[in-house]
């Protein structure tokens, strides 16, 4: 990110054979048993690691490093496992990427595990994010545009980005993010996956 903060699509996206771009998944969150299992599993793995390190009488510094690596690995693997068990495996592809403001693109949603979907909501949204840095970072998010894409499950949906839309922006503590958000509910579990889209300044 330079002084302009222009988010010009530094994330590498995969272009499929049909010319569409498969978006990379950004943030996600889950509620209900999925998040409990994810948290509980992570705690269990870390506690087990502490017990093993204690029994082996490992050097404290090496033990700390091993625990930190274990924590990251456990959190990622448990998150992936719960997503595999309860998630719908959503994927989003777009007809073009990045997209200049004022122009149109098509969105298509796919699900690798459709049996896990009972309720589904696909939302095109723009939001502001402000990060309060401190001992623990706090992220404030406020959507300024939220549009439900009712037909996104059946096929392509066309979206026109407003001409006066603020382009994607990424600073150290502030961001403007445009994304396709996929929210699924099934078996009392809600999961949300965010697929950011880069919006460029409009052509004049």
């Amino acid at each position: 990110m330079g002084p302009s903060g222009l988010d010009s699509g530094s994330i590498i996206h995969r272009v499929q054979d049909d010319g569409r771009t498969k978006l990379r998944r950004g943030s996600g969150k889950s509620t209900g048993p999925a998040s409990c299992a994810s948290f509980g599993g992570t705690v269990l793995i870390v506690v087990s690691a502490v017990a093993v390190l204690g029994a082996l009488n490992v050097n404290p510094l090496a033990g700390f490093v091993v625990l930190a690596v274990t924590l990251v690995f456990a959190a990622k693997s448990m998150s992936a496992l719960t997503e595999l068990l309860w998630g719908a495996g959503p994927g989003v592809s777009v007809s073009r990427h990045p997209v200049p403001a004022g122009e149109r693109f098509n969105v298509r949603c796919t699900f690798s595990r459709p049996r896990n979907v009972q309720e589904l909501k696909v939302v095109w949204q723009g939001r502001e994010e402000a990060i309060l840095r401190g001992y623990d970072d706090t992220t404030f998010a406020e959507p300024f545009l939220r549009q439900e894409l009712v037909d996104a499950i059946r096929g392509d949906v066309s979206i026109e980005i407003p001409r006066d839309a603020m382009p994607s922006f990424s600073g150290k503590h502030a961001r403007i993010i445009w994304s396709i958000s996929v929210e699924t509910t099934g078996g009392g579990i809600s999961m949300q996956a965010d697929f950011p889209i880069i919006v460029l300044p409009g052509r004049s």
């Binding site: 302009s4 603020m166 382009p167 403007i176 300044p201």
Partner: peptide
């Protein structure tokens, strides 16, 4: 530079 534009949003 090209960006950012002057912006008056809801929280930012």
């Amino acid at each position: 530079p090209a960006m950012p534009y002057t912006y008056h949003g809801r929280i930012l």
